[in-house]
């Protein structure tokens, strides 16, 4: 039995058990995503990877590929829906790209470029979130956290430390750190942790390094994420 799905009209082979996202990535076709990272179990929370299947939208990262499935991804309607979701992420936090060291090599920004976002569109929430600079090697700027839980998963499943968790609910959901003081510096977090490397935005950043590569010459300054892929796929990435 051949196992093939059709993605925007292109036949894509897959192995049973793979998700639509797995199949697309293996075939070198980009479906935008933020909470997904092939090194960790699918999460399905950011909703950026929505694709059309049978007249409905489903998240490519959590939906099993089925033989003969017809999947729509790169249509104007779907891009527009994804754009709204990315805009929601932008207004929910404080994403000041000109003041962020990750700018140009930030997946949130790159995905926003990919879906054609020119402005955040919605009213900004302007939440007030203090920065945690208590750790000697890393800082956390919660203003840039999009709750993808990649650091939570990496710390739990790879580093076996459980340094991060999500607390609260609704719009008050927020990343917390497992230490008596709640500060990163008092936790078991180390610069060598996988959790230090997986953040798709500038929320978890190394200290003592700044703008080694000038703005304008960075990964996504040159080419879209649909061509160059995620940060993890880059030389020097995790």
């Amino acid at each position: 039995m051949s196992t093939t799905l059709s993605l925007d009209g292109r036949p894509i082979p897959f192995t049973p058990g793979q998700t639509i996202m797995d199949a697309a990535l293996a075939a070198g076709i980009y479906i935008p995503h933020l909470c997904h990272n092939p090194d960790y179990a699918p999460h399905g929370s950011c909703r950026v990877c929505m694709v059309g299947v049978g007249g409905r939208l489903v998240s490519a990262c959590t939906t099993a590929a089925l033989d003969g499935m017809t999947v729509e991804s790169n249509t104007e309607t779907i891009q527009s829906t994804r754009r709204s979701i990315v805009q929601m992420l932008f207004v929910e936090g404080n994403h000041v790209c000109p003041a962020c060291e990750r700018s140009g090599s930030c997946q949130l920004q790159a995905v926003a470029y990919y879906v054609g976002m020119l402005s955040p569109h919605f009213p900004q929430f302007f939440p007030q979130r203090p920065v945690d600079a208590s750790h000697p090697d890393f800082m956390i700027d919660f203003n840039r956290c999009i709750l993808c839980e990649l650091c939570v998963r990496a710390s739990r499943d790879h580093d076996h430390k459980r340094v991060f968790a999500v607390s609260g609910r609704g719009l008050a959901s927020h990343l917390v750190i497992d230490s008596p003081s709640g500060l990163l510096g008092d936790s078991h977090f180390a610069a060598s942790d996988r959790a230090a490397q997986v953040c798709p935005t500038g929320a978890i950043l190394p200290k003592h390094r700044g703008y080694e590569q000038p703005i304008g010459q960075r990964l996504y300054d040159q080419a879209p994420i649909s061509v160059v892929g995620d940060l993890r796929a880059q030389p020097g990435g995790e």
């Binding site: 404080n94 994403h95 000041v96 003041a99 020119l118 402005s119 955040p120 900004q124 302007f126």
Partner: peptide, 8 residues
């Protein structure tokens, strides 16, 4: 567009 640096 979004308040930028002054909005910090």
């Amino acid at each position: 567009v979004n308040g930028g640096v002054p909005a910090m």
